[in-house]
Amino acid sequence: MKLEKIINEIEKILPTKTAEEFDNVGLLLGKTDVECNKALVCHDVTDEIIDEALNNKCQLVISYHPLIFKSLKKINYEDRIGRIITKMIENKLSLYSIHTSFDNLKNGLNFDLGKILNLQNQKKLIPKKNSLMKLTSYVPNGYLDIVLNSLYKAGAGEIGNYSNCSFSAKGEGRYLGSKESNPKFGNKEELTKTSEIFINLIFPSHRKKEIIESLINSHPYESVAYEITKIENKNPDLGLGSIGVLPISMTEKKFLEYLKNKLPVSVLRHSRFTKNKIKIVSVLAGSGAFAIDTAINNKADAFITGDLKYHDFFKSDNKILLVDAGHFETEFFIKNKLQELLKEKIPNFAFIRSKINNNPVKYF
């Protein structure tokens, strides 16, 4: 199978257009026209991961974190990143990275972290802005369900926990076909009046191409009238972080003990106790200090993330319990989830889960 085909299938599940602007996702190394029969799924790319991929005769490494994140000015074999890139090129290994294209999914990384903590009624902590569009079109009587069902299948009409959402109203359409036209109703060079139905649906902007193709392919007219507009509504299905509710409220001390039982961590760094019960919990796996204010504004009792700095803990200001559970420790399940997702959606390809735990942080 060509690598290009594998990438196309991956990006149907994890569109690169949904990733954050600061990120570097997609094919980072390799050519799309090479044969690819096996991929190693890992958390981070290290020397050990490359050896593991080669020992398993993989042609592709799929990593969660991108190996190349900031701009590279040189590729030096003495440098870790340069050494790994060189070794991959020498062994014709391709590299594809996922990162926030998975985080931002409706049921992505942070939703899974929330499930581990038994959070209920989860929603996005930071819904993505400027990621929704609205389609308007006009469908003749008798074709409404055909067109709508095609658009739903392409990803239109989903709002939160609801699918197949649309608005329609009856009206009259008019057109005058030229000599070269082939009208579905009426005759060439004659003004035609026909009963039509006005339709409105929203869709995620990264599905624009599929939505237009679906509309044109399912619509009976040879020239389909439609408009697409950007809308400013926040997208409840895309974005970073998650916020939900614990089954029962608990004291802060009990909550920290609860976290230690749920996550692979023996030590938790946290802010001063607020003396409030913990019920509403927000999470952002990995590095999430930038979302502290958002968690507070959403009335969360606790915020779980990693990589908090000294001064970040002051931001709790007796309003929220901040918990640094570790970058890797809040993402520990990512290899399993990615492999499960890829195997489910692309069953005719071999995805191997790495056996290496490459958390660079050690505790004494």
Rank of each mutant, 00 (worst) to 15 (best):
G288Y: 00
I280M: 05
K309S: 11
T294V: 12
I304S: 05
A285S: 14
Y310P: 04
A295R: 08
K277R: 11
T274Y: 01
I292C: 05
N297I: 09
H311Q: 07
T294H: 15
K275E: 15
A285E: 03
A289C: 02
I278N: 04
A285G: 15
N297G: 14
I292S: 01
I296C: 10
F273T: 03
A295E: 12
T274H: 06
D307Y: 05
D307R: 06
K309P: 00
K299H: 01
A302T: 07
F303A: 13
D307F: 04
K275H: 14
G286M: 10
T294F: 15
A291M: 14
F303H: 09
G286L: 01
I292M: 08
K277T: 12
F303G: 12
N276V: 14
D293K: 13
K275T: 12
A295M: 07
A295Q: 05
D301H: 06
L284I: 02
I278Y: 10
S282N: 04
S282T: 01
I304W: 07
I278P: 12
A289S: 14
Y310R: 06
A285I: 01
S282P: 11
A285C: 12
G288S: 03
V283Q: 03
T305A: 14
F273R: 04
G288D: 04
F290W: 06
S282M: 01
I278C: 12
S287M: 01
K275G: 13
A291F: 15
A302Q: 03
N297F: 13
D307W: 03
A285W: 02
D293A: 04
R272C: 14
K309T: 10
N297Q: 13
N276M: 09
K277N: 14
L308I: 12
A289D: 08
I304V: 05
Y310M: 13
D301F: 10
T305D: 10
F303C: 13
G306F: 02
K299P: 00
N297H: 11
G286E: 05
T274R: 06
L284P: 03
A300K: 03
L284T: 02
A302L: 00
H311E: 08
N297V: 02
F303K: 13
D293F: 03
N297P: 06
A285V: 04
A300N: 05
I296Q: 06
T305L: 11
A295V: 04
H311S: 11
I296G: 09
I278S: 02
K309I: 06
L308E: 11
N297R: 10
S287Q: 00
T294Q: 15
I304L: 14
I292E: 01
K277E: 11
R272Q: 14
I292L: 05
N298W: 07
N297M: 10
V283S: 02
L308K: 05
K309G: 07
I304K: 02
N298I: 03
I278M: 08
R272H: 13
I296E: 10
I296D: 10
T305E: 08
D293N: 13
K279C: 00
A300C: 11
V281K: 00
I280N: 06
F303Y: 15
K299G: 01
D301K: 09
A289W: 00
G288I: 06
G286P: 05
A291K: 07
A302M: 05
A291Q: 13
F273H: 07
K299T: 13
A291L: 11
R272T: 15
D301P: 06
A302C: 08
I304D: 08
K277Y: 07
I296R: 10
S287V: 01
T274L: 09
G288V: 05
F290M: 12
